[in-house]
Computed example of a mutant assay.
Amino acid sequence: MKYAVIGPGAIGSIIYCILEDKRDAILITKPYQLKILKEKGLKIKEFNKTVRTIRNVNVTSSFPKLKEVDVIFLCVKSTDTKEVAKKIKGNVKKSALIISLQNGVRNTDILSKITGITSIPGVVTFNATLNEIGEALLTMKGNIYLQNNKEFEYILNDIREIFNSSSIKIKLVDDIISLAWSKLVINLQNAITAITGQTIRQSLIDPISRKIIYHTLEEGIKVVEKKGVKLGFSFVLNPKLLLFLLRLPTFFIRFGVRLMRIESDAKSSMLQSILRGKPTEIEFLNGEIDKLARNMGLKAPINRELVQIVKEMERRKEHRFISPLELAATLGIN
Rank of each mutant, 00 (worst) to 15 (best):
K49H: 14
V51E: 08
T53W: 14
T60I: 12
K65E: 15
K65W: 10
L66K: 07
D70Y: 10
D70E: 13
V71K: 08
I72M: 08
F73K: 03
S78A: 13
T79Y: 14
D80N: 11
A85K: 05
K87L: 03
G90Q: 12
N91E: 07
V92G: 08
V92M: 05
K93R: 10
S95L: 08
A96R: 01
L97V: 11
I98P: 01
I98Q: 00
Q102M: 06
Q102N: 01
N103Q: 03
V105N: 02
N107M: 06
N107S: 10
D109S: 14
L111H: 03
K113F: 14
I114M: 11
I114P: 05
I114L: 10
I114K: 05
I117Q: 07
T118K: 15
I120W: 03
V123L: 01
V124E: 01
T125I: 05
F126T: 02
A128T: 00
T129G: 00
L130W: 11
L130N: 10
N131A: 14
N131R: 14
I133E: 04
I133S: 01
A136T: 03
L138P: 01
T139D: 06
K141E: 02
N143A: 07
I144S: 00
Y145G: 06
Y145Q: 03
N149C: 12
N149Y: 10
K150G: 13
K150Y: 15
K150D: 15
E153V: 07
I155N: 13
L156Q: 08
N157K: 14
D158Y: 06
R160T: 13
N164R: 09
S165Y: 10
S166K: 09
K169Q: 06
K169P: 04
L172A: 02
D174Q: 13
D174A: 13
D175E: 11
I177A: 05
L179R: 02
A180D: 04
W181T: 04
W181M: 08
K183A: 04
I186R: 05
L188S: 10
L188F: 04
N190D: 13
A191L: 07
A191N: 07
